[in-house]
């Protein structure tokens, strides 16, 4: 069977949900006639018509605001941010309105806000960011970051069916680089469940998004040195799979927390706190973080190369931790 790319998997997921549930519709900048900047919505206008595939003005606040209103009226909107970086323009709608609606007057807001995030494509500081932590810090939201085509499809479907706002961060570096065979039948990937991508005995690398592949590549190299990394892909950050994290740490006793987001206030810090609170007596070495440095994503390709965590970084820290 044909292999499905990560970006195609997202499209399939939305497409299938639109076919099975007429409340589902998409809106965003250039999602209609142009088919989306990354072609996630290509062909949808022809298939579902302009009432369900809506081109909007360049205003993220308006896109999310309209989505929230539609959701309150019983619809299941999927709002596209052309780049996840610009989700900040809709920050108030998402964090003050969508996230709190259920808590304030009992009305859930079943919207999905999705968009491409992440670097590695020389996009510069406005088109490469990882804005997940603004939303992870907002109770009332769900935040997912798929790393495989299977998860990309399963999580977008779960997000659309979820009764509450889900922020869905796609990694644009993975769009066309990652492909796999997908099941033909309907499936979802439950929000809040991590996946072990590689079993290992020596060190747990806990990560998500594109860094899953960095970890796996490092694991392949380190295997030759007799160091067995376990790679845990969180898939969801809010809620995150605490059980899987603690279980892995308790088995390997050493842990590397890896993400492409910058260091301060990154998800690794939260994980480190949970691990030291709940698995302190299982640790055989310090909890180590590997993240981007605390700067904007540089535009210069050599600088971006330096900025992003690399296989060599994981190998270096893993060797240090193994010797500890």
């Amino acid at each position: 069977m044909a292999l499905t790319t990560y970006v195609e998997a997202i499209k399939q997921g939305i497409w299938e949900e639109m076919e099975s549930d007429e409340r589902v519709f998409v809106l965003g900048e250039d999602v209609g006639i142009y088919g989306g900047a990354f072609k996630v919505t290509a062909g949808m206008l022809e298939k579902f018509g302009e009432l369900r595939v809506i081109d909007t003005p360049i205003s993220e606040s308006a896109i999310v605001g309209a989505a929230i209103g539609a959701a309150l009226m019983g619809m299941r909107p999927v709002a596209e941010m052309q780049f996840a970086d610009f989700i900040s323009c809709a920050f108030d709608q998402i964090t003050n309105f969508a996230a709190k609606c259920r808590y304030r007057w009992g009305a859930g807001v079943p919207i999905v806000v999705r968009g491409p995030s992440g670097g590695g494509v020389h996009g510069g500081p406005f088109h490469s960011q990882n804005p997940e932590m603004y939303f992870v810090h907002t109770p009332g939201l769900k935040v997912v970051c798929p790393s495989t085509a299977y998860d990309a499809k399963g999580l977008i479907k779960a997000a659309i069916r979820d009764p509450d706002p889900v922020i869905y961060f796609e990694h644009k570096f993975l769009y066309r680089r990652i492909k796999e065979e997908l099941p033909t039948e309907d499936y979802i990937v439950p929000i809040g469940k991590a996946a072990i991508r590689r079993k290992g005995t020596d060190i747990s690398v806990i990560t998500y998004g594109a860094m899953v592949y960095t970890a796996l590549d490092a694991a392949k190299e380190l295997e030759k040195e007799g160091i067995e990394l376990e790679v845990l892909d969180l898939r969801s950050l809010l809620p995150f799979d605490k059980e899987a994290v603690l279980d892995s740490v308790k088995r390997t006793n050493k842990v590397i927390l890896l993400h492409e987001d910058t260091e301060i206030g990154g998800f690794a810090g939260e994980l480190a706190a949970v691990i030291s609170e709940e698995a302190f007596e299982y640790l055989d070495g310090p909890i180590r973080r590997i993240t981007a440095p605390n700067t904007p994503v540089p535009y210069s390709p050599p600088l971006e190369e330096f900025f992003l965590p690399k296989v060599a970084d994981v190998m270096r820290v893993a060797r240090e931790l193994n010797a500890y």
């Binding site: 006793n253 302190f280 007596e281 299982y282 640790l283 055989d284 070495g285 500890y324």
Partner: peptide, 13 residues
């Protein structure tokens, strides 16, 4: 009492 040996929380447990 603790032993002057460097170790880790896991090892002490």
């Amino acid at each position: 009492e603790r032993g002057e040996q460097r170790s880790s929380p896991l090892v002490r447990r």
